[in-house]
């Protein structure tokens, strides 16, 4: 054995060294390392789980948004309808107001027309009187000769009631 160079003490020391190292390794490196691997696995699991939750949330939110969109759509349609009817009412009101004003204008115009017509009729009668008197004057002046005039004077004087 001694020819081989194998030292029993050395080997034993080496073996003890190895065991000590093994123990130390096991205690201070392997365990934490295993713990670390466990941690990693756990983290992986957590990650998977949270991803799953996130996805669920996402789906839920998507559903919610869809619902909202639909509601908005409905509201918008309703508002549109209301506005349409309001515009219609407004228009009708304006139209009836315009009609009323038009009626008033017509009444006023009729009033003015009536007044002008009265005026015109009065003027007509007056002109007629003027014309009549002119005709009479001309006719009598041409028609009455001296004898007629003497007769007229005689009659006037005799019909005259005494004046002072």
């Amino acid at each position: 054995m001694s020819g081989l160079g194998i030292d029993i003490k050395l080997i034993i020391a080496q073996i003890i060294n190895f065991f000590v190292f093994f123990l130390i390794f096991r205690r201070y490196l392997a365990k934490p390392f295993a713990k670390y691997l466990d941690e990693e696995e756990r983290r992986e699991q957590l990650k998977e789980k949270s991803e799953k939750i996130l996805k669920e949330e996402e789906d839920r939110i998507k559903k919610e948004i869809e619902k909202h969109k639909k509601k908005l759509e409905i509201d918008y349609q309703k508002a549109l309808e209301k506005m349409k009817t309001q515009v219609k009412d407004q228009r009708e009101k304006l139209i009836s107001q315009a009609q009323k004003e038009a009626e008033e204008i017509i009444i006023k115009a009729k009033e003015i027309e009536r007044r002008e017509r009265d005026q015109l009729e009065k003027e007509t009668v007056r002109r007629a009187v003027e014309l009549a008197s002119m005709i009479l004057t001309k006719a009598l002046a041409d028609f009455l000769d001296d004898k007629d005039q003497k007769n007229i004077n005689r009659r006037i004087i005799s019909h005259l009631k005494s004046i002072n």
Partner: peptide, 17 residues
């Protein structure tokens, strides 16, 4: 026309003033 005297007299009868 020019009045005759009789006509004027008749007038004065009716209007003494």
């Amino acid at each position: 026309y020019e009045l005759s005297h009789q006509e004027i007299d008749k007038l004065v009868e009716k209007i003494p003033s």
